[in-house]
Design a protein around this nucleic acid. Structure first.
Lengths: 230, 230
DNA sequence: ATAAGTTATTAGGGTATCCTAATAATAAAA
DNA sequence: TTTTATTATTAGGATACCCTAATAACTTAT
């Protein structure tokens, strides 16, 4: 709990490294993400370099060392386990869990995490659909991808969202889209790339291209053409 | 979670105020309790005065204002609710819960506390036997007192310990004494004030005067002479 | 290739926490 | 009462974390 700040830096470097594979994790990039100013971040990055938790050079940006990765992935693990616990055991809503997990992830007790993880039945994915790293820091794989990559006829299951943002989660609630829902892609409207879906209750849902990029799904049809990469 | 430090100061002032009613909560006293040095504490006390959370003068020491009391008692409430949750729902042992609750008490989510409190059935006492303040900051009363105040023939139920110390809790485990155990005072040995007890299984237990001072019990015999204050 | 715009870094400053060492105030003992 | 011991406070310094303003190093567009 004392390494609160440091943990958040390492987690952010991990997250930005995963999300923007193209982009380098620069001090400015991190500063925006953490709502801080670049000099503040740079200062901290230097101290993380000194502690052997990251490597940093201005062209390649910040990269976690093995030691840094272990800390970061452990925080991510704790976060996702807490989210799952809050959602499944304590009946919090999908949009509420993130903020509380941001705090709980810094509670330092392996035994506590092990306990709630085992109560949950050692799940591989959290309620947002994000994979829960195991104790060795290995992240389970899934074929989740944005709904926007789907084609007409896809049978999709909702696995999560790409950015953890309460506004978007509430937007989905309003659209009547929830985690694990099965959605069929009826039509992709070429004019604005919005997508017409039907849900299990055979209701029509129209989702914008922007939202479709943030909604993560997996296609359940075993050999659907959507899976062919060009 | 940002007010971590401040919350711990206020909690400490509350706790020392309760434990040592005679003694004033001085900067030095607090410094020892918090493992800090007096100037450090004094500096913080001045800032708490400025924030209107305490009053301080060197003769009377630190005293919580209404505003300060509300924060302190809320942290105490969270601590004891988490202890109870860890003990009852997550099967942690009596001696493990304190350290984890020290962290969890700073997680800022009323909804989370309300939820686990209600899962526990809104208990009035935590596993150490300490009263759980209600949302209004009112602390339930009980007639718990040290075992050392008992007399021969008392039928005592174990409600807690006066100081939260893992060594002592383990010592009690070794003596085969657990929370809520019923103990009968068979004999008080005048030589060294140690106490001979029998437990529910009719086993004999010998407890030292020192330990008896730290073990908190209530006498179950309605009009037992132990209750007469001289 | 150069001006204009970005991005990275340095310089310097503020607050919060923590410390040691020195001094002031108080209490206890001779 | 004076000395001694204890306690409270001030002075001054270190580190962590945050900032703005200025400079240096790059890109990009003309």
């Amino acid at each position: 709990m004392n390494s609160f700040k440091e943990e958040n830096y390492l987690k952010a470097i991990y997250q930005l490294g995963v999300i923007d594979k193209e982009n380098v994790v620069s001090a400015t990039h991190l500063a925006n993400w953490l709502f801080l100013k670049p000099p503040t971040v740079l200062e901290k990055l230097n101290s993380l370099v000194n502690k052997g938790l990251i490597k940093y050079d201005k062209t390649g940006g910040a990269k976690l060392t093995k030691k840094g990765y272990e800390i970061a992935i452990n925080i991510v693990r704790r976060h996702r386990i807490w989210e799952t616990y809050l959602y499944k055991q304590l009946n919090f809503s999908w949009s509420e869990v993130h903020e509380i997990a941001e705090q709980l992830e810094h509670v330092n007790s392996d035994k506590l995490i092990d306990k709630i993880y085992s109560i949950l039945g050692n799940p591989e994915f959290d309620p947002h659909g994000d994979p829960i790293p195991n104790k060795q820091g290995i992240v389970p794989k899934s074929d989740r991808r944005p709904l926007s990559k789907s084609i007409k006829g896809c049978v999709c299951v909702v696995l999560g969202v790409s950015h953890d943002n309460e506004v978007f989660l509430n937007y989905l609630s309003d659209l009547n889209i929830a985690l694990n829902d099965k959605l069929i892609v009826e039509q992709i409207i070429s004019y604005d790339e919005s997508i017409r879906l039907t849900n299990q209750k055979n209701e029509f849902i129209l989702i914008s291209a922007k939202a479709a990029e943030q909604l993560l799904v997996a296609c359940l049809k075993p050999s659907c053409k959507c899976k062919i990469e060009i």
